[in-house]
Design a protein around this nucleic acid. Sequence first.
DNA 1: ACCATGCCTCGAATCGATTCGAAGCCCAGG
DNA 2: CCTGGGCTTCGAATCGATTCGAGGCATGGT
Lengths: 369, 369
Amino acid sequence: MNGATPRPATPTHGSRPTLAKVAELAGVSVSTASLAFSGAGPITPETRDRVLAAAAELDYTGPNPLGRQLRSGRSGIVGVVIGDQLKRSFRDPVSVQVLDGLVSTLGENGLGVLLIPGIPSDDPARAVDPLVESAAMDVAVLVWGVSSDDATLTALQRRGVPVVVGEGRAVPGAGLVGIKDREGTAAVVRHLVELGHTRIAEIALSFGTAERTGPIDAARLAQVDRTPTANRLAGVRDAIEPVITWETEASLVEHGKTAGLALLDVPVRERPTALIAHSDLLAAGALLAAHELGLRVPQDVSVAGFDGLDLPWLSPDVLTTVHQPLAEKGAELGRAVIALLAGENPAPVLLDVELVVGSTTGPVPTPAD
Amino acid sequence: MNGATPRPATPTHGSRPTLAKVAELAGVSVSTASLAFSGAGPITPETRDRVLAAAAELDYTGPNPLGRQLRSGRSGIVGVVIGDQLKRSFRDPVSVQVLDGLVSTLGENGLGVLLIPGIPSDDPARAVDPLVESAAMDVAVLVWGVSSDDATLTALQRRGVPVVVGEGRAVPGAGLVGIKDREGTAAVVRHLVELGHTRIAEIALSFGTAERTGPIDAARLAQVDRTPTANRLAGVRDAIEPVITWETEASLVEHGKTAGLALLDVPVRERPTALIAHSDLLAAGALLAAHELGLRVPQDVSVAGFDGLDLPWLSPDVLTTVHQPLAEKGAELGRAVIALLAGENPAPVLLDVELVVGSTTGPVPTPAD
DNA sequence: ACCATGCCTCGAATCGATTCGAAGCCCAGG
DNA sequence: CCTGGGCTTCGAATCGATTCGAGGCATGGT
């Protein structure tokens, strides 16, 4: 019926019905049809029903999100940049629980989460994931902090994408949600000190720059370029100077075990009497190492962690740890995103942590033992 | 300079520069400016440089994805529907590894992953996540199979979104990637039978319908509505009829432990001599249960799993299991997505699995023992 | 010198929806 | 009978980019 279109300048899209077709069938204008779906604006029930009936007849399932997005300038998508490789990030229940809180909070507000892999830290080019450069997103969340010259952060800011940083140092103009890392490790180490420990070894989270494993010296300590790590290191030192600090490449059981074996498999006189790990997974690994070496916990060595995970397979041991509200952190990140979208400037949030004493810490062994 | 625009029909978008502004500054037409960025079509290096320079001056970071997406009809986004709650799905390394393979493969092709929570199975309304109804996506991946009347699948098909199903039954018109579940459990149970076991108990994955825990009867067995579970059940029965089958609500260590305690904490005459679990996490839980009950593995009871995960904390035990190529499954899902986008009709893929015998299975204990 | 051949660049249409002011309609009041 | 007010519906502009054929300009062949 309609005259020949001038030129078909477009590839034959999957010919789904459009709002225009629905409007035509319903005998109304496109703008009225739009009203029938969006509900924004007055419309007679009859008219709406007629439009919806036409839609049903054409198998029209609702406005095409792409059109809506262009018009509104919003994609409804929040980019979530996770630490490094997905595989590794998600093997850590800490990430998962935070993400869970984040996804639910955003979901309740009609926002979807676009997963953006972080950068393999061994990439010399400090390249940025292509999605960071060109994916549509209204806000980005950097879940695991930022380093001082974070290429991803820079790219996002250049694009004008508002950013929320989790567990990071404060970034001007960006939302921030963290926990009291420093107070946390300080509390747990103070607990160990009160039990009489003086030779305390520390198993630290990744330093953020080159992935390394092993004991560190003062020079290396100065290179920390990752916020939660830096804060937890500082907290430990608020209570005591550890006899040795062991750097790990990631917060996983196997790395904790490696560290534990290295730290504990030494003559008893040099052996630390307590291990403080920056994460529960690392602590769990250290615990396994202690068991494997035939050491009794906590009689021979105390072990403490950080996070407050529920690790059923550690049974009957119950880890002494610092509990942090992971899902709540995720929810708080979500709220910061919502606030940013509403044009507000969310205040930084620092959540409380709590020392939870379990069965893996006890009085320092007497030398005579 | 420019005359008054007729009417400002739009909210003041975050006034980022547009391609038109860049073109104006560079003194070229919008179409030429587009060419400078997309590289599709001939353009003089000088012209391109002039456009890029203008872009740099205006802080224009590249074409707005929303505009591009509307024009091309493609969002570059793949919706990934995960089983149920994020928290639970991702506590299972199986999901994570598959997702990792999927994300990398899609990433290499410029596609992003939109995380879509599945439905809390306790939702009586069988509602669908809003994202399923209205988020922009070119393809959707249902990672953990579909049930017979899957509301999410239906909604996606109505929308005309192509679907790839992982681990599911075949769906007409949808891509399919799975593993040889049936052959897998058959192989591991046959291994147990060869070791002399006849009293074999089975710890099964969730049945998909109501979340239940506990022993099942024949009636319940007929209600299985989840493909991997159904196939693994069938595989077991290809080798032997288990003396008892225990249904779990999810594939997590604690559920395996509960099952293990229930199955093993009985008089020795009734006790199964071997446990076959549908997943490594369940098997690990059963193993912990056996240890807790003071049973030696494999002298008193054999335990086998499925998946081939690397579970360092099981040490020194090494689980007998069926290895499945998880990352490869993810990659294969990704390839199916790409194929679908290319207009092809990807053939179903069924990946091989392999029995890997560890230290947790051994000869059936002699009754005299 | 003239015409054919390329190679760039430009204009205009288009993707699918939202939105805002204007227009149309009906009814009540003067 | 005419006019004013309140609702609903409509037209047209707009979001930001891509794409295709047409047009312009310069080069090379005869």
